[in-house]
């Protein structure tokens, strides 16, 4: 594998750089237009005869019991916290990986230490049975 010259960096010239994001903006616009158009057309085509039983919350045919927004397991929250930690790690990994060929052994060791510390955190969570679904 030879080191390659980056040919399409998408940023040769300010106009080109900005215009790529114009394309993205147009895609977002198209993405919003389709649901807006489809749901508007659907409003003209579909019947609208609401009645009480139709609008009750679905609970397999039974009368709904209590609140719909019930308390749920704390574990979802812990997984979300773990996700935030490792997602931040990827935020650091991406620019590091892009610039890696221009940097030396030193940054490899640095990144290794950083990842190792987070990995120790993962091992700790593992030991504390955070990763075990039915531990609580």
């Amino acid at each position: 594998m030879t080191k390659r010259l980056v040919r399409f960096d998408g940023g040769d010239g300010v106009d080109n750089y900005v215009n790529q994001y114009v394309v993205v903006a147009i895609f977002i616009l198209l993405g919003i237009l389709l649901p807006a158009a489809a749901l508007t057309v659907g409003r003209l085509l579909r019947p609208h005869k609401p009645n009480d039983p139709k609008q009750t919350t679905y609970e397999s045919g039974n009368e709904p019991v209590g609140e719909g927004q019930v308390r749920f397991n704390i574990r979802y929250y812990i997984f979300a916290l773990m996700f935030v930690i490792f997602d931040v790690e990827t935020v650091f990994l991406y620019p590091w990986a892009v610039a890696y060929n221009k940097l030396g052994l030193f940054v490899l060791v640095e990144m290794f230490i950083f990842a190792a510390m987070l990995f120790i955190g993962l091992l700790y969570a593992w030991k504390k049975k955070v990763l075990k679904w039915n531990s609580v």
Partner: peptide
């Protein structure tokens, strides 16, 4: 939970090509 391995697994690809640009 699977987004984390998904985004980390492509770091190897980024290392090999030295770019985040998909054409690169």
């Amino acid at each position: 939970s699977y987004e984390v391995p998904l985004v980390i697994s492509v770091v190897g690809v980024i290392l090999l090509s030295g770019s985040l640009n998909l054409r690169d």
